[in-house]
Design a protein around this nucleic acid. Sequence first.
RNA 1: GGAGAGGUCGCAUAGUUGGUCUAGUGCGCUUGCUUGGAAAGCAAGUAUACCGCAAGGUAUCGCAGGUUCGAAUCCUGUCCUCUCCGCCA
Length: 414
Amino acid sequence: MLDINKIREQKEEVKKALLKRMESVDLDIIISLDDKRKKLIQETDELKSERNKYSKTKPSEEIIKKMRELGEKIKKFDEDLENVEKEFKEKLSELPNIPADDVLPGGKENNKVINTYKDKPKFDFPIKDHVELCKLCGLIDYERAVKISGSGFWAYTGNGALLEWALLNYFIDFHKANKYTFIIPPFMLNEASAYASGHLPKFREDLFWVEDGLCLNATSEMMLDNYHRDEVLDEKKLPIKYFAYSPCFRREAGSYRTEERGMIRGHQFNKIEMFQFTKPKDSWKSFEELKDNAEKLMEGLELHFRTVQLAAEDASAAMSKTVDIEVWIPSMNNYKEVSSISNALDYQARRGNIRFKDKKTDKNEFVHTLNASGLATSRLFPAIVEQFQQKDGSIKIPKVLQAYLPFKKISLEK
RNA sequence: GGAGAGGUCGCAUAGUUGGUCUAGUGCGCUUGCUUGGAAAGCAAGUAUACCGCAAGGUAUCGCAGGUUCGAAUCCUGUCCUCUCCGCCA
């Protein structure tokens, strides 16, 4: 949610920035609703003040009669105010975050590559895709997972499970060394939390719901953003840095394409998420730190990837700036997202009411929130298997993972 | 799942025949006095949001609704916590 005072004070600047990601922007509607709101508050408060004056002691019959009428009036004003406030809030929360200065307007076509690591691997033999390689090496069991749970699921088996776990351990050790605090959150959350993190109402259809009114975690960003909801954080403890492990559950309804077979897109995948709560002045520094961390993790894996800065319309609405890391998947001849690094500024903090007491002003201010995958495994696994495949179908393991595995390469299943 | 108790200002507590209760007290914290310095003691202050240029006003006693001229106090629903019993892959 944006700050109404900022909208009022810097209307033209806000409008110009929002036009980067919206076709049209009407801030005047919101401002006039706010005017209406303020006027109603003033009038209602006066009436209530009147009433309170007489409520201190037992009033006479005559005054009781008068107050009864006043009560009716107050009730009506309160209703009006509630309606105006509701509409105001709706309109205000429909506005996306203000894109950062260096974010280009428009959609995907304006995404720009800001970094690449290594070159596309060259193969002097016909390459296999990860589905075939995983089958040859016995890393993934698609058939049995589908039998148990339906399409869109897979099971990691044997060396495949070890490889998946090695990836997660590599990430965990990295974040631990950077002094981030490890959190294993609940994997289900209630509606209020999903609203606060901004995933409702927009993603209702994309979430799995259980009978008790809870939904399955779709990204631990949901969990971490909510972690300090309605809290006033200690300024001295900022920035607070977390990383969380969780499986992520997504319906991904209707988004399957034949090119996205295997584990490129599924209903469940593992992810480590980084998250920071910072003071407003520090958030862009933290943004760079998160991006560096994600890139370092990728470099450690020796995979060819690129870093892409998203154009305004391609980033999620809550974010001021988003950078994606995309790994090269040879069989698809394409790059796929493995990390998304975003700065929400105070947009999420406003919604979740997450603040800190500013010593200088002695006022409660909203923190800034940032999130970044570090990393999701479901595209890395195929990338590793494909980028490091050998002619015979065996797979070399990057050095950083060898420390977590009892083998240096994965051989074909006998 | 059953039965009971409870959710009040950072913490702990008072407040249930509805009316100077937004709310007392203790602790903690801040500032000042005192001191060579400290402790103790003394004094003052110590929630948040919104409206207002300001004076000031309004709202909030888990949350939502109701009764009433008036609700922390009464009623209903709901969430959460605790105790006992039952069940338990």
